[in-house]
Amino acid sequence: MREYAIGNIEKAYGKKGVLRGVSLRVPAGSFVGVLGLNGTGKTTLFNILGNMDRNFTGEVSLRGKEVAYMRTKLPFPEWRKVKDLLSFYERFYTFDRKKAERMLENTSIRPTARLRALSAGMQRQLNFICNFCVDAQVLLLDEPLTNLDLVFRGFIVESLIERAMEDRIILVATHEIKEFENLFTHVTVLRDGRLGPLTETEALRAQGKSVEDFYGESLL
């Protein structure tokens, strides 16, 4: 299993530089929390890492189908059916369709339903399940818990714990530090267009600092 190296990513909208040299080296098996205030560019960064935005300078060591990206919203037209989505993932990625179908059985999402018939929460569930069943080296999650009830939040956390047992890499952009705090192996804060150093969470706690403390300090 390989590490994930991000080198000097720069992205500007017009004259405004949103990302000003983002670099990171994530070891295999890490569960990384990418923290930062709203509007600081977390989604911009994830769009770049997740193949959506290809107009940037910098290097990313793992791209294409090696990356599964759970965006805030499913990028499929509303009239598509759930089973078409599964077929799409099956066609373009290495995808465990059986597992996805099993996971969907535990939700109220029927395979023949169209996306527009699903509530925001159900769409998120589907989004998570699809990306979770992709056999990719990197899993990117942009605010995965919004709009979800307690039950499914628990389900996501449990699923990610299982994924964390493999040597893959998980990056989560989130504000909900509480839910993920004990899962993160590392955290980093995006501020002023740059990522702070990758910090081990247990090392922080050994110093008597919580992840929230660290986050708070980084924003000052």
Partner: peptide, 13 residues
């Protein structure tokens, strides 16, 4: 047509 999902899946332009 709306096709951003191809990009997400890593299909080259």
């Amino acid at each position: 047509s709306f096709r951003s999902y191809y990009r997400m899946a890593g299909v080259t332009e």
